[in-house]
Amino acid sequence: MIRIVHVYPEVLGLFGDSGNVLALRKRAEWRGIRVAVTEVELGQKIPSNGDIYLIGSGSSSAVKRAAEHARALADSVGSAVAQSAQVLAIGGGMHLLTRRVDWSDGTSVVGAGLIDGVSVPRSQRLVGEFIGSTDGLDVAGFINSGHDVVTNLAPHIRDIHGLSIASDGVVAGTIIGTHSHGAYLPMNPAVADRMLVSALGDELPDGNEALRRATHAANESRRAIRQRIGR
């Protein structure tokens, strides 16, 4: 049984981030692994016994609203991470986990501080499809972001083509952050499967035909993006 906690889906979910929950759940279920998904709304207590925490993207006003609960996030998700739970945070959700988010008007909000870095406005907004790699896996997606994370931590995605950046996101222990949507995990099933392996602590059983169909479709989606980028 894998416990997935979807954090603040009603405010953080601007770019179809519910797809990340769907991909993890389906890819586990298609292999006969049971999954329990808990959705936590703003102000509700976040359980700290989850195996995987998913935090989606949001506009600046959404990140500001969620940041009012940064302390609760730090406590609950922090203690889960201390017990080696995994976190995938997208865009604004990743910014929320850094120490501080600066806005272009000079103001800032305090983040959960689970990622040792600061989120700052980009000089130019980044919008478009990209391809890249993470730990030897080819990944692809779409980035639409006005903020970046300043950190000494390693990036999650390297060798990026299609956009004016070389790398994206952060890896902070078991926390992964990226600006990629698409949604990220449906289109990059190898990353999803690796998260499931870590959560299960074991190899994944073979899946059914539905799993193969979804994997093939995702592979073709990335192939199409790679062709558009001309690589």
């Binding site: 449906p186 979804a214 479709a217 995702a218 199409a224």
Partner: peptide, 15 residues
Amino acid sequence: GTKAWQWETRLAYAE
């Protein structure tokens, strides 16, 4: 369409 496979991925996850 050029985004056909992204829709196929979505529909695959919805079975």
